[in-house]
């Protein structure tokens, strides 16, 4: 005869299975919803026009998003250029050189940096970075700018994605077997040579995964960028130009999106584009990372 608690246990198992599947499906629900909502705009303006035209006049029914896509690309690329060298150096330092005691001091700083809200980065950007670009950096190049530009957005974004990249990189370095390092060291290589020729080479896929993850974080970052990037609809041609990245477009216009025809659909299309890119990047980096993990266990 079945015991009451065993029935309870089996019942729970079924309920939990259904619940888990339902919640895991949220990702797909979001994708489908955004796809469905952006159908009207894809049908009336072709995909090609939406992505490759810079003709943005919602009132006239023109929804070319090239300016926004270019803005996103600019700030993301600058962020990566700033963040990657800093992260790589720090991650190597933390995992290869530093004593555990120093690690205990440095780790909390990175954790705190990871926890600082987007808006706070934005405020800091307005207080420090924007004036610094306006009065110190731009004059060096003989350019006059308000300081609210792609460079400011890129710098802020670069700092924001540092914690993600570092923590993934440190995890990756941990997976490289000590024996490999020992073999190299015993051949007479210095520590740096070992890192350069053995560790970095072995860790390459993991490093790429870390960067991809950082990029996907950068792509969707909204508030901090919105506050410093200048918000001008144009395709930026230099780092001192203002821009209008995709997330900013969505955030700034949700208010009037119901009053202009097709506008809401266009914004949902922007969200869909972001969603697709971010999901792709995430899946890609997770696949690389899980492969590394599996190799380690084998």
């Amino acid at each position: 005869m079945l015991n009451g608690r065993i029935i309870k246990d089996r019942l729970t198992s079924k309920i939990l299975l259904i619940f888990t599947i339902l919640i895991s499906l949220i990702v797909i629900i979001i994708g489908v919803e955004l796809f469905y909502k952006s159908q009207p705009i894809i049908k009336s303006n072709s995909l090609q026009e939406l992505i490759f035209s810079k003709d943005w006049h919602p009132l006239k029914g023109h929804f070319g998003m090239l300016s926004f896509i270019a803005g996103t690309a600019w700030v993301t690329i600058i962020a990566v250029i700033i963040a990657v060298p800093l992260c790589l150096l720090t991650a190597i330092y933390l995992s290869e050189y530093v004593h555990k005691r120093v690690l205990k001091i440095i780790n909390p700083f990175i954790d705190i940096l990871a926890g600082i809200p987007s808006v706070i980065f934005g405020v800091w950007g307005i207080i420090i970075i924007v004036p610094f670009i306006r009065f110190n950096i731009a004059p060096l190049f003989g350019v006059s700018t308000t300081g609210y530009n792609v460079l400011a957005g890129g710098i802020i974004l670069g700092i924001m994605i540092i914690p993600v990249i570092i923590s993934v990189m440190v995890e990756v370095f941990k997976t490289i077997p000590v024996e490999l390092r020992e073999a190299s060291l015993s051949l007479g290589a210095t520590k740096w040579q070992t890192i350069k020729l053995v560790v970095l080479k072995k860790a390459k896929p993991g490093i790429i995964a870390a960067i991809v993850l950082g990029v996907s974080r950068a792509l969707g970052e909204t508030m901090a960028v919105l506050m410093v990037v200048g918000n001008m609809v144009q395709v930026p041609t230099s780092v001192f130009d203002s821009a209008y990245p995709l997330p900013t477009l969505i955030a700034n216009n949700y208010g009037e999106m119901l009053s202009i025809p097709m506008y809401d659909s266009a914004l949902m299309f922007a969200a869909l584009v972001l969603f697709i890119i971010v999901v792709l990047f995430n899946v890609l980096s997770r696949i690389i990372l899980s492969r590394i993990e599996r190799k380690l266990r084998a």
């Binding site: 979001i30 955004l34 914004l267 969200a271």
Partner: peptide, 17 residues
Amino acid sequence: LCFDIMWGIPSIVYGAF
């Protein structure tokens, strides 16, 4: 993996959704 992807989705997309 689903939750890893969910973690990566920008909060602005959740907002729009």
